[in-house]
Nucleic acid binder design. Structure first.
Lengths: 208, 208
DNA sequence: TGTAATTTTGACCGTTTGGTTTAATTATAT
DNA sequence: ATATAATTAAACCAAACGGTCAAAATTACA
């Protein structure tokens, strides 16, 4: 087959796919080996055990999510531009990799301590992320708003519909085809919704 | 012990707790039996197998989530009052039962077909839910807004911070004690945010 | 009280799972 | 060429798992 890729990469590709879809408990080492087109013994030859392989995938995946947030929100653009770009990019990204967020959320719920250590090794800059948005809210819009709440509002509006897709379809009886259109619409609707909300604070500027 | 409760109830209480926290794959029949204070054989005496016990818990849990939505949004109040009440109730509810939403989302992702049948047996009224909010948006605020997007915005703003709590704490380095305060603040912040956003549509009333 | 039905138990079974071992084979590099 | 590293197949292991069974304990009831 594709002997161009090194065995290690073939394993990581397979592991990523299986872990993302089924989580740690649902994943089977045999399935990962099969998908990588190798022997199960070889899997343990490259990665000591399931845990270490899982940690490698988690580290990589979490980084992907967090670093895109940094990249956009620490750049030099107006706040509303950042939000538009972020919403567009993120809806595309997590729609394409539909298991990615749920994987991270579930992993962190399952083994918080073990994974918290891994996360600490990635040098995130949560302080900067918050400070810069807070500054932009003040400078560009004259608002004293808790930046964390704004971040969570943005993330909630973007991530929830993707993560809770089957739940939403069940509660509101939305067929599959309509759901794709719905998510596409949100690329425009969410930035508008946020912009309108922020406009509303301009008169009475208390928000914590 | 508490021999006042029937064995069946003890089993369901234990199963609920274990399934909610660990999902179908993570749950162990032995753990449920232990928590119920009974023998594993007795567990199978009351419930044929793991699947049937799981379905019973899922049915009950999904109903709890969906029916509260119906109860509030099909009542006779102004839209903004509904939203305030809903946000308050829901943040309390899912903070107390912190695994409940994630459980339902994961379950629906794991076995969509099997559970979709169960959901159909509960008589939800998704049509009414959407129509009534659409009507209220028009009558009370003069807005032609897609009610589904509004629902998802509300749910996302409320549910996401609870479901993604460990993810948020990791990305933004929020300590545990500050997280409780943060969620409490959202009971006021979310309705305000939504109200402001809706106000913003009043001028240009195109939103799909 | 005696006895049939129900409830509960401990021991057991077959399968799956993560992981190891061994021995043999293939590829790589010096 | 030859030592070293990569890869395979196959068999195996111990633990964990869902599930079963026959017997014992309890309850219902005549």
């Amino acid at each position: 087959m594709d002997n161009l890729q090194s065995t290690e990469i073939k394993i990581l590709d397979a592991a990523r796919q299986v872990f993302h879809q089924k989580g740690f408990n649902g994943a089977r080492m045999q399935e990962i080996a099969d998908l990588a087109g190798i022997n199960k013994a070889l899997l343990h030859y490259y990665f000591r055990n399931k845990e270490s392989l899982f940690e490698k995938i988690f580290n990589e995946t979490f980084g992907q999510i967090a670093l895109k947030l940094n990249e956009i929100f620490l750049s030099e653009m107006t706040l509303m531009t950042k939000i538009e770009i972020f919403v567009n990019f993120y809806i595309n990204f997590i729609s394409k990799h539909s298991y990615i967020i749920q994987f991270v959320i579930n992993a962190l719920q399952d083994k918080p301590d073990q994974l918290r250590e891994i996360i600490l090794k990635q040098n995130l800059s949560p302080g900067l992320l918050l400070e810069q948005v807070q500054k932009q809210l003040k400078d560009e819009m004259g608002l004293d708003i808790d930046p964390l709440h704004l971040y969570i509002n943005i993330l909630g509006l973007v991530i929830f519909p993707v993560v809770a897709k089957p739940l939403i379809q069940s509660i509101f009886a939305i067929p599959d085809d309509k759901m794709g259109i719905f998510l596409e619409q949100r690329k425009k609707i969410v930035p508008t919704f946020i912009a309108n909300a922020l406009k509303g604070y301009e008169k009475d500027k208390s928000f914590i």
